[in-house]
């Protein structure tokens, strides 16, 4: 197998460009409300795939379907790992995590009372095998395993430039740093696909720049596929390879940033009828 990258942070055996995740005709409803209506999309290895849309369009619901927190009533989600394909539609979140799909949350959901280091180590849970008894004895194999992942956690700490806070309790950190730690925790899973739910929400320009740089590092150096929800159009147009647009639970367009910015349905959904007010055009993208 020949690949351009081979690094610890990526557990996917696929080659760049291979079909990795296939969402087909997914319908998700809560009682009378339909959150997702016949949504289909395909995600390929090592791309940055952005999902955009107005508030309440179903973006987070779609991520929740992929990571198993919601189970769609119709449709299927298929996940490819080279020699096997997995139907993950009905799997539990932890089973999907074990297959290599990691995510971060819109509202930070870190383990508040743990240190940064412990949060990252907790992210590596799926890779750690020590049993109960040997854990309690902390002897031989268990200790070696802990030290191995302690060293691995240090790689992530270096990547995200959070060395200075590694022993701090997460709850007392600034918002921007917490977002960074959450990315680190997800990376510790060595994900094949990384789902990021608004990683830059509530950040200032500099923090956004940093975060965009980390996302690009992870994608370019490690080849991790990234599925991104974000509201900042500048960032989206800059870093994503392909974009899907959701509106009222339906996919109204997808394609490269240029294609999407020219798509009439998308322009209408975002801006109403008047095309002169298109902010994407105003930004000269």
């Amino acid at each position: 197998m020949q690949r351009d990258f081979r690094h610890t942070l990526n557990s996917s055996p696929l080659n760049p460009g291979d079909l990795q995740l296939n969402v087909e005709h997914v319908r998700l409803g809560f009682g009378g409300v339909t959150a997702l209506f016949d949504v289909s999309l395909s995600i390929y290895q090592s791309e940055i795939f952005a999902i955009i849309g107005p508030n309440g369009a179903g973006k987070t619901s779609l991520l929740n379907c992929i990571s198993g927190l919601y189970h769609p009533q119709q449709g299927s989600i298929t996940y490819h790992t080279g020699n096997a394909e997995h139907q993950i539609t009905k799997l539990k979140p932890y089973e999907i995590a074990e297959l290599g799909i990691a995510r971060s949350f819109q509202n930070i959901e870190l383990f508040r009372h743990m240190t940064v280091l412990d949060n990252i180590m907790a992210g590596a849970h799926v890779h750690m095998k020590a049993g109960l008894l040997s854990s309690m004895l902390y002897w031989g194999k268990t200790q070696r395993e802990e030290i191995k992942f302690r060293r691995f956690a240090e790689d992530i700490i270096d990547l995200l430039e959070i060395q200075a806070i590694r022993d701090k309790q997460v709850g007392e950190l600034a918002y921007g740093l917490q977002k960074r730690v959450e990315l680190g925790r997800a990376l510790a899973m060595k994900p094949a696909i990384l789902l990021l739910d608004e990683p830059m929400a509530g950040m200032n320009a500099e923090e956004k720049e940093d975060m965009a740089r980390f996302v690009l590092d992870v994608n370019e150096e490690h080849g991790v596929t990234i599925v991104l929800i974000e509201h900042d159009m500048g960032v989206i147009m800059d870093i994503s390879d392909r974009i899907a647009v959701l509106n009222f639970g339906q996919k109204i367009g997808d394609g490269t940033p240029e294609e999407v910015s020219k798509n009439q349905d998308v322009v209408h959904a975002y801006l109403g009828e008047d095309e002169d007010a298109n902010p994407v055009k105003q930004m000269n993208l």
Binding site: Y94, F105, E109, A122, R185
Partner: peptide
């Protein structure tokens, strides 16, 4: 760490495997 993770944030814990 899994025990503490369940205490602090059980949904995130499950998504972390």
């Amino acid at each position: 760490r899994a025990f503490v993770a369940i205490r602090d944030q059980d949904i995130a814990a499950e998504v972390m495997g």
